[in-house]
Design a protein around this nucleic acid. Structure first.
Length: 303
DNA sequence: CACTTGACCTGTCCGC
DNA sequence: TGCGGACAGGTCAAGT
């Protein structure tokens, strides 16, 4: 579920609450969650410190010093909860209401007992998420990570690189190309819709048919939307919590998410929900209609 | 190769 | 109230 802005928000919350912590114990409550037996996993991580928390696309990397790393992907319903002296101090990921309840709960898959009375609970309702214990070499060779496109907000993500990454798509809808992590790292279903709306592009439009002006708008939109979302701590409903304080949410700024059947914030046309690339897709039939947008471009160029 | 579909899971919501 | 089906913010494997 979490996309790049949500994962980045989790990363920052972990950086503020558990970086430097020593792992004193690990309990694996659902063994398939990790890529090693509970005994092997336990031996490998206990005694090590979490020296850094990094992010690549939607994946989190916890450095344990030396040659050890934990590669964590939250997938749809993964969730991280940090307690300090039994009190909630940070959480991120899937926005379920029961993060304020007792931990562990029925969705808790792994518990890290940390130094300074801290506990990290890794929860996941749908059991899609995974933690992998990897070496530095395995991390570098991981096909998912190494096949990933540039970070959307990095300087590497130029218009030229965007065009080059899109070149392998022909008739696939542009939304499918955006959801492919090899195009740009970190975009998921919500932000793909948001970006296409800002760029005034129909999500079903075949990728190869996008005009240079559309590619320019889309590239700019991706950077604008994701920057804005990171600044607002992502789209989780109850917002992320840090040191007990509720924070901002991009949800209050979303253009289309959760607004099907409601007026488009730009033109007032009712937002429609369709299926594109196998995913539920919100779009504005007026703003994102091709003949309509070329009409409005002609109009604006006359002005 | 490009592209689509189904599987992985559990929970919730909606219509009958 | 109960039940069946659709669907949920991701990725991968297998299919056409």
């Amino acid at each position: 579920m979490p996309e790049m802005p949500e994962v980045e928000t989790v990363r920052r919350a972990l950086d503020a609450t558990v970086r430097g912590a020593r792992i004193e114990a690990v309990t694996v409550l659902w063994p398939p969650f990790v890529n090693a037996t509970p005994a092997v996993f336990n031996t490998a991580v206990v005694g090590h410190r979490i020296t850094a928390i990094r992010r690549r696309g939607k994946a989190l990397i916890l450095d344990l010093g030396g040659d050890r790393h934990l590669l964590l992907h939250l997938k749809m319903t993964g969730q991280l909860v940090v307690h300090r002296r039994g009190r909630l101090v940070a959480f991120g990921g899937h926005p379920t209401a029961n993060i304020v309840g007792p931990m562990p709960n029925s969705w808790t898959r792994v518990v890290f007992t940390l130094s300074a009375a801290r506990t990290l609970f890794v929860n996941d309702q749908r059991k899609f998420a995974r933690i992998r214990l990897v070496t530095t070499a395995e991390l570098a060779a991981d096909p998912f990570l190494s096949g990933m496109g540039p970070e959307a907000l990095s300087d590497d993500f130029t218009l030229a690189v965007f065009k080059q990454r899109l070149a392998r798509f022909r008739s696939a809808p542009i939304k499918a190309a955006l959801l492919d992590q090899a195009t740009v790292a970190g975009i998921g279903n919500i932000y793909a819709d948001e970006c296409l709306h800002l760029a005034h592009i129909d999500p079903r439009q075949p990728t190869a048919s996008l005009k240079p002006a559309q590619l320019l708008r889309l590239h700019k939109a991706i950077r604008t939307i994701l920057r804005n979302a990171v600044d607002h701590c992502g789209t989780s409903y109850p917002s992320f919590i840090n040191d007990g304080h509720h924070r901002d949410s991009y949800l209050d700024h979303a253009r289309l998410f959760g607004r099907q059947g409601q007026p488009c914030p730009v033109c007032g046309t009712l937002v429609k929900r369709i299926r594109v690339a196998g995913r539920g897709t919100n779009y504005c039939p007026h703003c994102q209609h091709q003949t309509m947008q070329s009409k409005s471009r002609r109009q604006s160029s006359r002005e």
